Amino acid sequence: MPPSALRWRFSRSSGPGGQGVNTTDSRVELLVRLDEVDSLTEQQLARIHAALSHRMIERTLVIVAAEHRSQLRNRQAARDRAVDLLRRALTIPAPQKRKARKPSRAAKQRRLEAKKRRGQTKSLRRRPDL
């Protein structure tokens, strides 16, 4: 992902940090402009948009990290989260396995008729009774 596609915004975070929480901008917002990522195809962009539309504003993915006290650790957390989200959005889900169902009445009837026909064919191969 090119650095030109990333935009960083910082603000004051709530939570632990003592007196420093009121003065340092430790909350991090990472904005990933997906239009500027040249390596993504239109199909991949559509898949990302379908999977992450609740986290997107127009064509920009928004990720917020504020769980650490330092801005540097929050930046790393946001970057890791972005990579993980994009990787999960781009993986193609495995096809769902077929669930076993009870055969229908017509399917049971067809099966029994096929068995009868097969039995008749085999009985015709036997020697005739004299």
Rank of each mutant, 00 (worst) to 15 (best):
P3D: 14
A5G: 02
L6D: 09
L6A: 03
R7G: 11
W8T: 06
S11R: 11
R12V: 13
G17R: 03
G18N: 07
T23W: 03
T24G: 00
V28I: 00
V28Y: 01
E29K: 03
E29I: 14
V32S: 01
V32A: 03
V32G: 02
D35N: 13
E36W: 06
E36P: 00
V37T: 00
D38F: 00
D38H: 06
L40K: 00
E42Y: 02
Q44E: 15
A46D: 05
R47M: 01
A50W: 00
A50H: 05
A51N: 09
A51G: 06
M56W: 03
M56T: 07
T60I: 08
T60C: 05
T60Y: 01
I63N: 03
I63T: 12
A65D: 06
H68G: 04
Q71K: 14
Q71N: 04
Q71A: 04
R73C: 00
R73E: 13
R75Q: 15
A77D: 14
A77E: 08
A78T: 14
A78P: 09
A82M: 13
A82T: 05
A82S: 11
L85C: 05
L86Y: 08
R87M: 08
R88K: 12
R88E: 12
R88G: 01
A89M: 02
A89S: 08
L90S: 02
I92Y: 05
P93Q: 11
K97P: 12
K102Y: 03
P103Q: 08
S104W: 03
S104E: 06
A107E: 14
A107P: 04
Q109R: 15
Q109D: 15
R111T: 15
E113S: 09
A114K: 13
Q120H: 11
K122V: 04
K122T: 10
L124C: 03
R127K: 12
P128R: 13
D129E: 09
L130N: 08
